[in-house]
Write a protein that binds this DNA or RNA. Structure first.
Lengths: 223, 223
DNA sequence: ATTTGTGAACAGTTTCACAGCG
DNA sequence: CGCTGTGAAACTGTTCACAAAT
């Protein structure tokens, strides 16, 4: 198998989500360009990594493309087990199974250092004190952790997770985590998202007008 | 000014956050490599885009580096105004000013289609019905919107935001938004984060062992 | 002596342009 | 004929290796 470029992987993940929002039977690379802002050639090349040959002359067959995407992204096998660590306000919003319904993931455990919380809160899956973290992750084959602990506990918790052989961490805290490179981290704190938007905007201001215009894939609203 | 690569920009944003967690007076590119997993040469080149010359022979002076970073990333001027749209469970967790304390951002308004919510909920800033969105964004100079509406309302709300001249959207919904390229979007839904982690892991499995090892910047835990 | 800053080589990613398929 | 799939060219980003700085 050809090596999938990192950028392509990220786009394919989004593409899969986008297709699930689409109604038609087929879709062309040009239509996808309008929806995503990515060039039609980059879209065609991304899709060609799938080797699915599910489109020609009339665009891609959405069903077949979606199937190929799921297979390629490792989303078609058994559901991947996830857990939530830290049941503060943010963690509490994730105690419902519905959250990941219809996806390749399921949350099967929650953890909090405060035993009161794990006893009082209602949830669709069992809640444990953090002391049980290592044991439950191993016995329940939990692959991904959703980290919603206070910033001060973030790195400490991450260290434990890494020791348990977790595959990846969704980091909702604003702490930048240091982990072995075998563990993947996605930072989705509000602050990092806003900071990145602001940096993007500030960077745009630094580009001269002509360069700026050249960067625009289309000039007006894309709906 | 030289054009800042997109990847560099993202790393610099994280670097700024990382430095704020650091205690020492100076830090070298090698120490930063240990903390982040990025190569020391990429770190040096990223920092060289700042043109700050704030380090030699003894590593970077953290203070000066942080100042240069904030300036470069557009984080040193007045606070940027933000708003939350959609006051469901997730939106409710963001009604406190503390959330962005000490950052370059402040939330100054919340919106919900349901007038009951805007009247009943407690918050550190005013809440309005969504009908007021356009007016308030313009009069209050709101630059960034935090989108926590139901998926079904996501694109519709984004369309209004774009019309109001918003600079960027932090998208907590799992809908992939279509916006003009002058508006930046950061997708931070749980599903997209997990999907991306899984794709990363699935991709790792597809790499042969030798290639895999070559990809590892360091072999064991980095603490 | 140690560590930055940076040309030059290298690797990764996107665009171009067009052959080939339906 | 319109659209995909893909070599080849162009461009962007990373690593190497070493001069410069202190």
């Amino acid at each position: 198998m050809k090596n999938l470029p990192e950028r392509s992987r990220k786009r394919l993940v989004q593409l899969s989500q986008l297709l699930s929002q689409q109604t038609g039977r087929t879709i062309t690379s040009l239509e996808l360009e309008k929806l995503t802002g990515w060039s039609n050639s980059v879209i065609r090349r991304d899709i060609s990594f799938l080797n699915c040959r599910c489109g020609a002359s009339n665009g891609y067959k959405i069903n077949e493309l979606q199937t190929a995407l799921k297979q390629f992204l490792g989303n078609n096998e058994d559901k991947k087990n996830c857990c939530i660590i830290g049941l503060g306000k943010l963690g509490e919003t994730m105690l419902s199974k519905k959250l990941l319904d219809g996806s390749a993931f399921q949350i099967i455990a929650g953890f909090d250092a405060n035993v009161n919380k794990t006893e009082i809160l209602h949830s669709d899956f069992p809640l444990y004190p953090t002391t049980q973290l290592e044991r439950v992750i191993k016995t329940e084959k939990i692959r991904y952790a959703i980290l919603t602990v206070p910033d001060t506990a973030a790195q400490l918790t991450a260290d434990i997770l890494c020791k348990c052989g977790i595959w990846g961490i969704v980091n909702y805290t604003k702490t930048i985590l240091t982990v072995p490179s075998s563990v993947a981290v996605e930072n989705i704190s509000l602050l990092s998202a806003l900071s990145d938007l602001a940096a993007m905007h500030s960077d745009m201001q630094n580009i001269t007008n002509s360069e700026y215009m050249a960067k625009m894939p289309f000039t007006e609203g894309t709906k």
